[in-house]
């Protein structure tokens, strides 16, 4: 039965991925679609950051991840390159957890 669940999940999740990529061109060139497409990245990135940094399952927690994000903000203000920002966030969190 677990295999049935795995196959159903796989088919469903793949269909959703393919479905998004398969929305027809004439829908994509509508002005409304273009405005929405322009707004989707900052909207989803904002939501992703918040959940990635603050959520632990269904609980909101403040831990080393938030310090890591703070370090990322400082590095971005200093115009550090992307990988330096990412490594700085990881290092900050790792060091805090060692203490």
């Amino acid at each position: 039965m677990i295999w049935v669940g795995i196959i159903v999940t796989a088919v469903g999740c793949y269909a959703l991925k393919l479905g998004g990529l398969s929305v027809p061109d004439r829908v994509l060139t509508r002005p409304l679609t273009q405005r929405v497409a322009l707004l989707i990245p900052p909207a989803l990135l904002g939501a992703l950051i918040a959940v990635q940094v603050l959520a632990d399952g269904q609980r909101l927690v403040i831990d080393a991840r938030l310090a890591g994000l703070g370090a990322a903000v400082v590095l971005l203000l200093l115009r550090a390159p992307f990988l330096v920002v990412v490594a700085g966030a990881a290092l900050t969190a790792a060091v805090l957890r060692l203490l």
Partner: peptide, 19 residues
């Protein structure tokens, strides 16, 4: 332990920042 969870948050922020 290696702060990889915080690294992903930092990466998303670095992508959002220029926008």
């Amino acid at each position: 332990t290696f702060g990889l969870d915080a690294a992903v948050g930092g990466a998303f922020l670095a992508l959002l920042w220029p926008r």
